[in-house]
Design a protein around this nucleic acid. Structure first.
Lengths: 192, 192
DNA sequence: CGAAAATTTGACATGACTCAACTGGAGTGG
DNA sequence: CCACTCCAGTTGAGTCATGTCAAATTTTCG
């Protein structure tokens, strides 16, 4: 097996095997873009036109409630996907922001192009089936721990996972992602 | 378009079109079973061998924590799917119970049989891709409201959805599903 | 009918929130 | 290179939603 020349292909190959023709069909369908720090890829009211694969950097999605408080939904680092799937698949206006936390490079694909790509490379249905399956399980995990664990336990779990997120994003973001206030997170950290 | 002779087919057709050959391949792959009320389809330590489509009845999945408290993960009524996907796809032991709440009829398919079926009817990859996509979005919704809404708001939302779940399952289950104690739910209900 | 289970009610405890003040480091401009 | 501002993070005091535990009541169903 040759080393795939592209991270995206590499990550897809984790779940489905691709021949060279399929690889290039996929690569052709994605458009590389680069964004600076703190740039919006999506703002509320806009339709989410793309799904993004993050090749480097960090991106968050969040929404702002009536009181003006940010609620962070996802914080994603390189080699993961980000989008507002609800808006993307319905092609209706989103309620979310998607914003780069760091300067980032991304691969994007539009709704129409993705449907064509599914037809060209049916294996991708399998890939995304598996991807969503895993994302779903992950969301259920997070739901479970939000419901039943204390804020402290959730933070400690995050520390244990040892994800570089903690070093790379402001504490306020982590707090929001965990569903607590920055003050609470600060107190939790002090305990240790 | 003829009326599909089977609920499962009908629900799959909502998302992908099937010809008659595909319909029968699918129907052949599933095994119908019937269970009485309060029967376990899965217990902790066991491997989840099947994915179930509920044709009638109601089923829940839950786990029991160290203190012996039940945490209900899902409550599903007819025309939906239930399983412990984590155990199912890894074929490793589960931590969950899956239990009928009412006498129910189900269609089940094993891991091995499902993989064969995917090969026989590739469109099913698309169907399950869409299904998981929706399940994922749904889980994120639930996560969001668990994090940011009060127990009262969450209960009211559930009432608004007007799902028959509320009439059909004990209040304790609803409370656990919402992530609160039965006492709290009782107090919330009194307010109205 | 009667036992067991589910629900309600009461009294009290607590984790996390709110709001406000304080601290310290990073960046800016004079 | 210092003073100034700004912002993230910390700390403190008081509040509130929800939890805990125990008892009372109602419902369910054999």
């Amino acid at each position: 097996m040759t080393i795939p020349d592209h991270k995206l292909i590499y990550y897809i190959q984790r779940w489905v095997e691709l021949n060279e023709a399929e690889e290039s069909l996929i690569l052709d369908a994605f458009e590389p873009i680069a964004v600076k720090k703190k740039k919006d890829l999506l703002v509320p009211g806009g339709v989410c036109r793309s799904v993004y694969f993050i090749t480097s950097g960090a991106v968050r999605s969040y929404h702002v409630d009536e009181k003006g408080v940010e609620h962070i939904f996802q914080i994603n680092l390189e080699n993961s996907w980000i989008s507002d799937l609800e808006s993307f698949f319905s092609q209706k206006p989103s309620n979310y922001y998607i914003e780069s936390i760091e300067a980032s490079t991304l691969l994007r694909i539009s709704y129409e192009r993705l449907e064509i790509l599914y037809a060209e490379v049916p294996k991708l249905e399998r890939y995304f089936r598996i991807l969503f399956q895993r994302a779903y399980l992950n969301a259920l995990q997070r739901l479970n721990s939000t419901m039943w664990d204390t804020a402290e336990e959730r933070y400690n779990d995050m520390v244990k996972e040892n994800c570089t997120i903690l070093q790379r994003v402001p504490q306020t973001y982590i707090a929001s992602y965990l569903g607590i206030t920055p003050e609470s997170l600060s107190r939790i950290r002090k305990k240790k």
